[in-house]
Simulated scan of single mutants.
Amino acid sequence: MNSIEEGINIIGPRQGFSPQIGTLVSMMNWMRMVVLGSVQQMTVEELDYLHDAKANTIGAMLLHLAATERFYQVNTFEGKPWERAENRQWDIPLNLGAAARKHIKGNSLNYYQNILEETREKTLTEFRKRDDAWLMAVDRKWPWGPTNNFCKWFHVCEHESNHNGQIKWIRGRLT
């Protein structure tokens, strides 16, 4: 195999992963860099800024990204349904809304970055154990209809892109 060129702006296979999983990892890493760039040097007050009574804070959205990733870890790596009791710490950030507005606040950017990093490290560790056949395996019972693991994990990446747009919108309205 030829040497794999790596770098944040090179989308493609990554050393230590099967080719397609490595390509997915490169996309996920790029998107995470973009999200973290959007929140760079934000204060606790900025992370807790609530634009209106129905909005989510940037801090809550960052925790939501980690919770979403945890949801897909449970589903694809552990092969288990999401049990609220077992995943209580993730319930509020996964669902956002009023409970998140009430409970997710007062945390530094470093707090959110550490949780995002810990969650991603678990994902990468599990990806290293799997191959492209696993990535292409289809879950015929998924609520959206037949869905493979690649689609589920691509959703984690595009989910970050979606919330990055919200984060940038809110950041642009900080007083």
Rank of each mutant, 00 (worst) to 15 (best):
Leu62Thr: 00
Gly16Ala: 04
Lys141Glu: 13
Arg171Thr: 01
Glu160Ser: 13
His159Val: 05
Thr23Pro: 07
Pro81Gln: 12
Cys151Arg: 11
Ile115Asp: 09
Ala66Thr: 10
Arg171Glu: 00
Tyr111Val: 06
Lys54Arg: 15
Ile115Val: 15
Gly106Ile: 07
Glu121Trp: 05
Asn29Val: 09
Lys80Ser: 10
Trp90Cys: 14
Val74Asn: 07
Arg84Phe: 12
Arg101Gly: 05
Cys157Lys: 05
Glu6Leu: 09
Gln89His: 14
Asn87Val: 10
Asn148Ser: 06
Arg128Trp: 07
Trp169Phe: 14
Gly97Gln: 10
Leu109Ile: 07
Asn95Thr: 13
Phe17Ile: 09
Asn9Tyr: 15
Gln73Met: 08
Asn56Glu: 04
Arg171Leu: 01
Trp90Leu: 13
Lys105Glu: 08
Ile11Arg: 13
Ile104Gln: 06
Glu86Thr: 14
Glu158Ala: 08
Lys54Asn: 15
Val34Pro: 01
Glu86Gln: 14
Ile4Gly: 03
Thr119Gln: 06
Val25Gly: 03
Glu69Asp: 14
Cys157Asp: 08
Pro13Ser: 12
Pro81Ile: 03
Leu124Ser: 06
Trp30Leu: 15
Phe150Thr: 06
Ala55Glu: 00
Glu5Ser: 11
Lys129Phe: 10
Ala55Val: 02
Ala55Gln: 01
Ile58Tyr: 01
Glu121Cys: 13
Met136Trp: 08
Ala67Tyr: 03
Lys80Gln: 13
Ser108Gln: 05
Lys168Thr: 12
His155Gly: 09
Ala100Gly: 03
Glu160Pro: 06
Glu78Tyr: 12
Glu6Ile: 12
Trp169Ser: 09
Gln40Ile: 01
Met1Thr: 14
Leu124Trp: 07
Thr175Leu: 12
Met31Trp: 04
Gln40His: 04
Ala55His: 00
Glu121Arg: 14
Gly172Val: 00
Thr175Tyr: 09
Leu135Asp: 00
Asp139His: 02
Leu124Glu: 08
Phe154His: 11
Leu65Arg: 04
Leu50Ser: 09
Met61Asp: 08
Leu24Cys: 02
His51Thr: 11
Lys54Leu: 13
Pro143His: 11
Leu96Tyr: 00
Lys102His: 14
